[in-house]
Amino acid sequence: MNQFPIFFFWFVCLPVWADGQNLVQKGDSCMEAYDTFHALQFYEAAFRADGSVVNRHRLAHCYYRRQAFAKCIDLLKPLEDDSVSHQGLRELFYSYRFLDNSAAQIYWGNQLLKRYPMDSEMVAEMARTYNQAMQPHKAFALTARYGLKDSSDIAVNRQMGDACFLNKQYQLAAEIYSRLVGLGDSTYSVCYSLGICYQQLKRPDQALPWLKRAVAVSDSTKAGALYYLGYVANDLKQPEEALRCFKKAYGLLEPEPSQMFNVVRGQAESYFQLGRYKDASDAFKDALKYDAGSITSYYYLAYCYQQMDDRENAVVNYNIFMSMARVIERKTDDLKELMGYAQSYLSRK
């Protein structure tokens, strides 16, 4: 009987395996102590001694923890998809996210959900990826399918609501955000989004309390909530409150032209409602510095001068308004009404 295979196993293979196991145990101990530096050395040595799937996963996890995402991918990607553990699939998904490879990220997310369809955290993360890629229809399909089994997961509902919001389905989005509030999720983003939904649905009375809650939750540090709260206050004929909000938003915003135009224009409309035409004219002029193509700003600026008995400046700005309005091919009824008033004023001697 040939004894060589037996001797080879006992005196060559077994010591190597034992050494590998010892290295793994040392690596595991280091990981428990949050020492990834020394754990990496042990896991690399263990993988050289025994390149098993288990050791490959251990080493990949250590690379992932150290944010060496490309090395983590290089270890896990060669495996057959069904050989990658749940943790490995998650690490592939997030590694590709950190490397800004959304196509590969989505692929591995789908692989994970095929095997673990009730992983709600990954459902939400996949939906968030779709929403960020401006594919809200895919985010909604994914979250709605999960919601047939579990309608109470907060992270999944958030992404479902955001998908409806991005699709401009504001009524459905409002219903989902309201469900989140009922589940105990009264975060800034939910209150803010719910308020904007009602504002877009032209229900300012319902938008107001949610935007106020968003402002309170953020301790008045978010310009967006203050900006929308100002517009809702204007819609509700509360110009003093609107001015307060716009002034706070103005102080928080960085000088980004489109944002600054919206805030300054909101201030101008508030002054206009109050009949403070001098303040309104100054604000409309400031708004035009950020967007010289705002046709209605010229109209309201002219109207302010008219109310201040400054015909010269009123005529100048009505003429600018008319010259811009005439070249618009599809004129709305509101624009036609403004043009009619401006022309009537310009026709006077």
Rank of each mutant, 00 (worst) to 15 (best):
R158W: 01
R128M: 09
K202P: 00
E254L: 14
K248A: 10
Y227T: 08
Q21A: 13
N2M: 03
V16A: 15
C62Y: 07
R128W: 01
L288M: 12
Q171T: 12
F261A: 00
R48M: 12
D100E: 15
R65A: 08
A144N: 14
L301A: 04
M118T: 09
N317D: 07
R179L: 15
F261W: 08
K149M: 12
N313F: 05
Q273E: 08
V156K: 03
K237G: 00
N110I: 01
Q169F: 03
A70V: 09
R65V: 02
Y107D: 11
K77A: 11
F11R: 06
G340F: 04
A207Q: 03
K212H: 08
D50I: 05
Y228K: 01
K247A: 05
E269R: 14
Q21S: 05
K247F: 07
L236F: 06
Y290A: 05
S258K: 14
Y271M: 01
D310G: 04
K285S: 13
E240T: 15
T296W: 02
K247P: 00
Q307D: 01
V264C: 04
L236C: 04
H57T: 10
D19V: 05
S193W: 00
Q41E: 13
D100S: 13
G20F: 05
P239I: 09
A223M: 04
A268Y: 09
L194C: 06
Q267T: 07
A233S: 15
D309N: 14
E312I: 14
Y345N: 03
A60M: 04
L288H: 07
A70Y: 10
G275C: 05
S52C: 09
Q259W: 10
R128Y: 06
A144Y: 09
T36I: 02
S347D: 15
R90K: 15
R276D: 12
Q259Y: 06
Q259P: 00
Y277K: 11
Q25R: 14
R244S: 08
L301R: 03
D162T: 12
A283P: 08
R348C: 06
A144H: 11
L75Q: 05
S258P: 03
D119T: 10
M160V: 02
S344A: 10
L142E: 04
G251Q: 12
F7S: 14
S29I: 02
N234C: 14
